[in-house]
Design a protein around this nucleic acid. Sequence first.
DNA 1: GTGTACATCTCGACC
DNA 2: GGTCGAGGTGTACAC
Lengths: 239, 239
Amino acid sequence: MPSNVRARTDPAIETARSVVETGLDSGAVVTIFGECTVEYDGRAASTLGPGDRHVMCKPDGTVLVHTDEGHQPVNWQPPGCTHEVSITDDALVLDSQRDNPDERLVVTFDAVEHVAAFDVTDPEELSLSGTEEDLRQRILAEPSLIEPGFTPLATERETPAGAVDIYGEDGDGRAVVLELKRRRVGPDAVGQLARYVEALQRDLHAETGVRGILVAPSVTDRARSLLAERELEFVALEP
Amino acid sequence: MPSNVRARTDPAIETARSVVETGLDSGAVVTIFGECTVEYDGRAASTLGPGDRHVMCKPDGTVLVHTDEGHQPVNWQPPGCTHEVSITDDALVLDSQRDNPDERLVVTFDAVEHVAAFDVTDPEELSLSGTEEDLRQRILAEPSLIEPGFTPLATERETPAGAVDIYGEDGDGRAVVLELKRRRVGPDAVGQLARYVEALQRDLHAETGVRGILVAPSVTDRARSLLAERELEFVALEP
DNA sequence: GTGTACATCTCGACC
DNA sequence: GGTCGAGGTGTACAC
């Protein structure tokens, strides 16, 4: 059985170029480790001087440049880019570009210390729970978690300010807007709820006010006082 | 000169364990490629069935699990975690945990096709331009970009709703709040500006209203109408 | 440590 | 293709 991996440590530059080019052409995930500089120009612009980094090129056009710290790549290119590899002045150059927006990432390796091409077979999808969608399902299955008498009427109900997570009415027939968050919320969520309540109020020409309820595990102090100022409510609930 | 890289293709499982453990202990960036399953439990919870993935462990405690698609890792652990590697039932198991919040990621490799440890030396910092901070500097250097007579008085001015990007006054001495965005803005930015304007209005007990100006390259239609409803303004400006 | 807002955010869904 | 909001968001910075 042939290996799914083609790798070289401290390769000659032409060998490195070959592994990368062959890998990219065959739809492999290609990684390059070595001393490099990185130039980026697009939505923003950046430069990164010489240092050791790990670069990953995916067959979907993604590029990721990782240092030894942090979850986030120091530089990257999103899916959909086209990469080219070449040798210029004894350096291995990876050039990744895209349109809309016009963006370009160029990684120049003075020295390649490792290169690898991985044939990836991954049939599985991630199964994730504990999302906002789970919270929504919980409430729709048991509306009394919000308060006795609450009745959901629609999800994703459109308003001039955007779609409301859950729209319904309370035991007295008043319109209720729910904004759901899977985690502790700050002022931004209050602003969002306030927008929806105001928009719906205008839209319905309601005589009685539209109630707005923020549903989340907890709120910060500032968010709580913003809720109070706007006469909005809070219900503690987890996904 | 000894190589900065220790790598093995299709290693025996004990060899793989040794390279990973030695690498983690020495502060190297360690990568493992092979067929694995992934279990995560923490802020949310997830499972991922068998497939080929590329796993990177950084010396700061970061773990990244990448498939062949997308910018984002399919699973990960943020910096600050402690990882352990072991062999259980002929599988290589990577166990990464942290407290606050309690989170655990377990990657189980049925087969390791490649393993590598990279000694990283990276003295450079990223130099980035085109950020919101650049836009702020541009306005402070030339306030008339907002409008003739505008005078900045403070940045990060605190209000009960949060800190205002730039606070100042117009040619008539009216208070002005600027909210800056480096890119095209939607309804969320309008909500943010509205919160600040309302909070400052209350705070100042101003007789004349506080003006709110959104400064960004452009706005969506919905954001524009929300601005109009709230009598907020827009100035087109890029970073 | 928590709170707050930015980010080349990315990503998916819907229009 | 643009708009919109979620995200296990991560990240820096202020309190």
